[in-house]
Design a protein around this nucleic acid. Sequence first.
RNA 1: GCACCCUUAGCUCAGCUGGUUAGAGCGUGCGAUUCACAUUCGCAAGGUCGCAGGUCCGAUUCCUGCAGGGUGCACCA
Length: 731
Amino acid sequence: MNTEKENVVNEKLLKPYDPKETETRIYKIWEESGYFNPYNLPERHKEHFTIIMPPPNANGSLHAGHAVFVTIEDLIIRYKRMRGFRALWVPGADHAGFETQVVYEKKLEKEGRSRFKMDPKELYQEIMDFTRSNKAFMENQLRELGASCDWSREKFTLDADIIKTVYKTFKKLSDDGLLYRGKRIVNWCTKHQTSLSELETTAEEKTDPLYYIKYGPFTVATVRPETIFGDTAIAINPHDKRYADYIGKEVELGELGHFIGRKKLKVIADEYVDKEFGTGAVKITPAHDPNDFAIGLKHNLETVEVVDKYGKLNDKTGKYAGLKVDEARKLVAEDLKTAGLLEKIDDKYKHSVKSCYKCAKTIEPKIMNQWFVKTAPLAEKAMKAVSSGKIKFVTEKFEKIFFHWMKNIQDWNISRQIVWGIPIPAKICNKCENGFADIEDEIEECPKCGGEVYDDPDTFDTWFSSGQWPFAALGYPDNNDYKIYYPTDVMETGSDILFFWVARMIMLGIYVTGEVPFKTIYLHGLVRDSERQKMSKSKGNVISPIEMSEKYGTDALRMALIVGNTPGSDMALSEDKIKGYKHFANKIWNASRFVLENTKDFDFDGKPEMTNEDKKLIDELAAEIKEITVDIENYRFYLAAEKLYHYFWHNFADVIIEKSKTRLAGEKKGERESAQWTLFEILATLIKTIHPFMPFITEEIWSFLPIKNKRLLMIETWPIALDNDKKHDQL
RNA sequence: GCACCCUUAGCUCAGCUGGUUAGAGCGUGCGAUUCACAUUCGCAAGGUCGCAGGUCCGAUUCCUGCAGGGUGCACCA
């Protein structure tokens, strides 16, 4: 029997650190512990804390942006859990309507197939299978990144209860008069064959020829001569003396009339027309231009559609029928020239053109009957929630951007002509074209005219459902989770979806539940490469988080994603950076080995007499941890991570451990024990503090520490308590 | 056009409410290293904190203007 007590150093620690083996094993231990579910947490965890995970699109691998949100949210959740909160992180997956459909269409294209030749139901089922397998794949990737979310509460945006909630909201909007179906000019993508919201288009500056066309007694300037067949008026400014006599009259078009197939056109006056621009006279094409459409409504003009949904001219254009818009443009211009109707061409005209954010094809403004949400009243309340401080942005800059958008918000087109999505629960009248919300599927004839009705074939804009995510995912209105965890605490997501998602969640959250969906918004920027270039497959500069995690360990990846990542600004990521933190993991590993090997004979039951020098070290440590804690509380994770890195490496390892070597080797008993205790104390404290940042390696080392009645590190108590003077911008 | 952000060492960025010699990581140079370290350690070089004003005892930090870069929103055919 050993008379001398000896702490055994785990033999794993004597070998180099193996992240891959460790991470898989540790994650399993966490998952099996049940602690991801707040209800399984020990007694001391009382106050609630929730984050709803931005559900990743279930249509591919996780990219660096996903890795950022996983890292930051997991860091927050782990920190709060250690601080004694009943921390809940609700994972989810998004069917991501249009996005997924686009991804799937590309896949079909590669296979030489097309969605337009497929039965919609068959297509839907195929995409469903595709999404389901991607979803499982994606969830495992989340595990690889160490996400300590509660899988038992995982939701999918196409779950029956989510759809039910979304339908109820649709009905409520309808009942409250905040929903309307109407013929409007929508942004039509001729490739994807669907309308898009304002946000799903990008404006690009282009230089196009501006054609000056002799138009009866006027000359008008236009970039789209091919729409001339849809002109139903000429507009001038009411104060324009040059044309005052023509107001309200019909003018003979003469030669041009033969050309476009109508003899006369009405002249209207509207402030919209700028006297200084072009000739001061504008041709009005209500069916193919948003501004003209608005004028058309105001002046009750006829709308004549001349471009079809494939972006080709239709049979109202005579010989041009069947031509694509840009082909027709050139031809019409040439023919006008031949006919002597083209006065001049200004070929340096700069203007901006909207295009589809996915395929970059020019948007064809098109009149369609669609569902719109009246956003102004919702935006009003959303802005109030922010200005009153009920919702706080971590950086002020986003508050400004948010208000700017909210003040100028337009009604939201929520109809999409794609199969992959939640079907809009509505009936459309065959006769009068009116639409009616019908979530119970009970309307059999048109309530207005008694006509025959059919199911709305469209699906919801995916953001309409994800905009309801926080309360829907928690089981609004009856589920206990909703009652306990809503409003949630922090919404952390990419700044690029501030309008798409965050703003909509605020509007719909307040509208449906009467409460804000979350109290704090933390937005991270884009992950760029080391040269600050956007990552893209074509540039070949994409850093795959999963690949990096497998090569250098998730902990290293996580540190690389936190250090230098300030809220709201884009961050630069390089493989070298990740490698650097792999070295850090190595450092932690080896320092731990050193401490444990040198405390083998130490009796951890009693605290030895401390030397003054060691007392000072412990005080300094406490001050450091306090500072780091305050940084975390104030969302300065980049600072906290850097300080931990710096303190561990350049203070603890380089100075404290180095200096301890002579004392450990020395014969003076008191000195040696004091040093041993101090080293161990500092190590254990740092391991705890680093845990939210680098959860795997710290949990592993923790398991080696000779501490009695040890629990998992993930539920250990945070090393210091904070004063209770919480500032409102704190976690 | 309107709005927002950025401009600090070769690169990527910190610098919180203005206060002693402006910091980190990476990179570079020189040296050390059989002692926990698929390395590591020490030392060093390197910045008129975009430009011009202003407020202040004092500004990288606050204000104004300008220049350059970026992003968002909108738009007159």
